[in-house]
């Protein structure tokens, strides 16, 4: 029979992940966990494919905090069906190097097995995140820079 993840497990994972509680996350990660973040690896070094529990822990506990430190992770939607969960959240962080505040939406698509997270794919508005991490607008094809109003607040 196909595994169905209890909502309580998904919510427990969300809670420790939102708090960036590395020990709590580790308890809910499968040894073969896969964690993917979609985005340009040369600009956002934490993007890419991360394989195994140790790599995921290193990602969340060390690699991401080298770039940004998250202080708020607010769920807008948590959906659970079968062995899968999907979340839409608003993440607020500070750039590690200067404390500048960043805010963007994150989508997580997860798969669980036996109460542990097996797979996660995170999708972010990567253009927006890159600009916030760099601290300046990216050059456009016509050389134009955009004003503050061009970014979509979603």
């Amino acid at each position: 029979m196909a595994y169905k993840v209890p909502r309580s497990v998904v919510e427990a994972f969300y809670k420790v992940y939102a708090a960036r509680d590395v020990d709590g996350i580790a308890e809910l990660l499968d040894d073969d966990a896969q964690w993917d973040i979609s985005g340009p690896v040369d600009l956002l070094p934490f993007c890419g494919a991360h394989r195994s529990k140790a790599e995921v822990i290193d990602l969340i506990g060390r690699q991401i905090p080298m770039v940004l430190r998250t202080f708020s992770f607010v769920p807008e939607a948590i959906l659970v069906q079968g062995d899968r969960a999907a979340m839409l959240s608003r993440q607020s962080s500070r750039r590690t190097k200067d404390g500048r505040t960043m805010s963007y939406r994150v989508a997580n698509f997860m798969r669980f097995r036996d109460g542990k997270l097996m797979e996660n794919l995170s999708l972010i508005d990567s253009f927006d995140v890159v600009e916030q991490v760099l601290g300046h607008p990216l050059a456009r094809s016509n050389g134009a820079r955009r004003g503050n109003g061009d970014l979509v607040a979603v």
Binding site: S38, G39, L88, R105, V106, L123, F127, D128
Partner: peptide, 15 residues
């Protein structure tokens, strides 16, 4: 409806 796309990738492809 809310969608998130890998917008950096999409923007580079469109440009």
């Amino acid at each position: 409806y809310v969608s998130l796309i890998d917008s950096f990738d999409a923007a580079e492809q469109v440009l």
